[in-house]
């Protein structure tokens, strides 16, 4: 019996007069790959920002592993085990791939500032430990060869992977992926879905991902919620979503708008 990883409870988010999210609820079970889909502007990223504590919802609550985290600060949400990626890749531009990953271990090292300045043994032990762990994560993504490269020198697809690897380094149990396949060519997308399945297994993760590519979602997700203008219009299996009339209208409507 699986238990609930993340519960979104009656979230409403208002920006000025505009309701970006309207009374939204859904549950993500442990070890699911859950898709949050919908046309552009449906409020998907807003939900991410609410989960990660960047936005405070107008009303409603976010529960993670039966604990309310609505008011928790973003950096503490990470420590509770929720990691995220961004829609437009946001790597640390001046840093190497390895250093990007090492940032993820920030809260998994405990040596103090003075221990760092005076180079106490704990500094050396912990730095060695996290470097080894970071290399293992890089292996998982087949990125070890780029460890010393500047993160921004990598190909787009590889940068995506670095961003996910960096999130993995925070040792999350729930991983939020914001349009991971955006801007990728079919072979990169294929590669990415394999990677997501693999890390889900290897790191025992629950994944909540945002997409508007229905095909990708269909291949990836166990469950989906479809949003349109901040409202839930469908929840269920992805195979049922693509034949649902409301969903089709929402998407086609989007095309005619575009």
């Amino acid at each position: 019996m699986s238990s609930t990883s993340l519960a979104i409870k009656n979230i409403t988010m208002q920006f000025g007069g505009i309701k970006a999210i309207d009374d939204l609820s859904f549950d993500v079970q442990d070890n699911q790959i859950y898709g949050l889909i919908g046309p552009n502007g449906a409020g998907k990223t807003t939900i991410f920002n609410i989960i990660t504590g960047n936005y405070k919802p107008t009303s409603g609550d976010v529960e993670f592993q039966q604990e309310t985290i609505t008011e928790t600060k973003p950096n503490l949400v990470v420590q509770k085990g929720i990691a995220r990626t961004f829609q437009n890749i946001r790597l640390f531009k001046s840093m190497s791939v390895l250093d990007n990953i090492l940032i993820g271990f920030h809260n998994h090292t405990s040596y103090s500032y003075l221990e760092a300045i005076f180079r106490f043994p704990r500094y050396f032990w912990q730095e060695k430990r996290i470097k080894d762990e970071a290399m293992m994560i890089l292996d998982e993504f087949d990125l070890r060869k780029f460890a010393d490269k500047k993160a921004t020198d990598l190909s787009y697809g590889d940068q995506r992977k670095v961003e996910i690897a960096r999130a993995i380094a925070t040792k999350p149990s729930l991983l939020l992926l914001d349009e991971p396949a955006a801007g990728m060519n079919p072979s990169e997308t294929e590669d990415l879905s394999n990677v997501i399945h693999k890390i889900k297994k290897d790191f025992d993760l629950t994944v909540l991902l945002i997409e508007h590519d229905m095909k990708f979602v269909n291949n990836m997700c166990d469950m989906v919620t479809v949003l349109d203008y901040g409202e839930k219009i469908f929840e269920g299996k992805p195979a049922d979503a693509i034949v649902n009339e409301k969903v089709i209208t929402a998407y086609l409507g989007d095309f005619t708008h575009a």
């Binding site: 990660t52 960047n54 973003p74 950096n75 503490l76 990470v78 420590q79 990691a83 995220r84 961004f86 946001r90 790597l91 640390f92 531009k93 001046s94 840093m95 940032i103 993820g104 920030h106 809260n107 960096r166 999130a167 380094a169 925070t170």
Partner: peptide, 13 residues
């Protein structure tokens, strides 16, 4: 310096 929001998303205070 590179990206404060992303640093927060890595759990950095």
């Amino acid at each position: 310096r590179d990206d404060e929001d992303a640093a927060t998303a890595m759990g950095v205070n």
